[in-house]
Design a protein around this nucleic acid. Sequence first.
DNA 1: CGCATATGTCAACGTTCGTTGACTTATGGG
DNA 2: CCCATAAGTCAACGAACGTTGACATATGCG
Lengths: 191, 191
Amino acid sequence: MPDRPAKTAKSQRTRAAILKAAQELFAEQGYERATLRDIAARAAIDPAMVIRYFGSKEGLFARATAFDLKLPDLTAVPTDDIGATLVAHFVDVWEGSLSNGSLISLLRAAASSDDAANAIRMIFGGQVVPMLARVVPPMELPMRAGLVATQIMGLAVTRYILKVPPVVAMDRAQLVKLLGPTMQRYVVGKL
Amino acid sequence: MPDRPAKTAKSQRTRAAILKAAQELFAEQGYERATLRDIAARAAIDPAMVIRYFGSKEGLFARATAFDLKLPDLTAVPTDDIGATLVAHFVDVWEGSLSNGSLISLLRAAASSDDAANAIRMIFGGQVVPMLARVVPPMELPMRAGLVATQIMGLAVTRYILKVPPVVAMDRAQLVKLLGPTMQRYVVGKL
DNA sequence: CGCATATGTCAACGTTCGTTGACTTATGGG
DNA sequence: CCCATAAGTCAACGAACGTTGACATATGCG
């Protein structure tokens, strides 16, 4: 039973407040440790409201982690720039300048939830693979998409979850320079 | 207050049984979802025994995730084989032929626990970085170690946690061939 | 203005968790 | 063989969780 109230203008503001608080706490603590009471407290409302708005904790999580990677059209970027473009784009996605920080929530949750892991697989299958399909021969598509996944998810895990110091210390330009060639090879290079 | 009983021979068998059950369940479900009751049930003993043996759930987790990566001496492998050697070694570690599967437990737990994330950082600082230090100039050491971390952790996450199909489908030889060059560049290549 | 309806509050529920203490049973050295 | 000591059992605890229903308040259309 998803969602209930969404009629007036004020309700949509509190609804947005709940979503924002949920995204923050899910991203910081993962699904289990982020409690409805904490989320409600951050949104300055009653825990019961969260249930009234989103039906359940799982329903809230589903809404809080729905998003769009806004991936670029690779046929529009010079072949030699594909790797750098992708690294830069994903850093932007995770840093929150594109979308919100909810991919980190999903990643955290995926560590202990098959549903969340499946959600990430769906995102890859529905967004990353189609993007690559435009510049990669079909036969190599699954393998190259998988390789891209290993490097992109590895960056996310070490930088935003494990917080490995040298990875955290790198800025956007460094990441593009260092990881770009890897991504380039995984997408269009010799394997 | 760590550990208590470890006197007789039979006690060490049940102690080992608890540890094994804990490693399995922590690896399968992560720290929060793996309950002491489930662990005790799998070990066929009383939940109270887990506390008597390991003091607390956190104590058990600390014991269940202590391990040695058994990293090779890189000065003993041909420079051109370093990347392939490392990829093969880490696959073995995760697959469980070396050590046990407890690195996956730690990785899962790190998604929602700063302590677990810190434990992984300690492992990298205490085992991976010293290994690389023997073949990498000190100035480049942190950066190269960080890059290695992104690719290694990315492989672990996509293959053993997210279970991205094409990554799961690759066998050891394929992984070595595909990821080896990346690792090679991160350790000794031009950046 | 009046009142139906949406929004928000409050207290409590049932469950599950980690943990504890008192108890019973098995073990092995003197 | 005895009995101190260890291993193992059992029931219960307090706390925290997601969720619920009854109730109070605010909103906005007629």
